[in-house]
Amino acid sequence: MKLPRILARPIAAAPPHPSVQLVSDLAARLEASARRRLGRGLALRHIGTGGCDGCALELIAARSLVHELDSLGLRFVDSPRHADALLVSGPVTRNMREALEQARAAMPEPGFVVALGDCAMDGGVFKGSYAVEGGVEAVMPPDLRIPGCPPNPRQVLEGLLALMEAQA
């Protein structure tokens, strides 16, 4: 009879888990800067401009990692009209340029534009293709760049935090 693995072998190391330290550090910093801003949060709108969607997956992971993101002042909104910052991922395909420009125009001033990931920074591996503009920069100046292919949730959160602190 084969023993179930759980009996046959003890758990050797602590299970891999999002670092509790990271989450609490971020939470503390988020809370501090949110307080300075008298509770007014930073409303974020993600715009995928035709990347592989890896950046969006990691953004979703970042959102579910720090669960109290909302109460700390970072929240996601559906319309660019309600956003303080656009998080732009992807190399900005020619087919998405107009939509990105319209979203920027709809966002109230002063709005921030974040280039999320290598593609959004300069087109990434798709640089030079007939079908891409080659990053956010080719269309509008980004206020913040978060490198990575894709950036992991820690990098995403660090970036958002920097934006929040700069704005406070």
Partner: peptide, 11 residues
């Protein structure tokens, strides 16, 4: 669709 067309096959 086609908004995410990057021209990958051409690269």
């Amino acid at each position: 669709l086609g908004y995410a067309h990057k021209g990958t096959l051409g690269l």
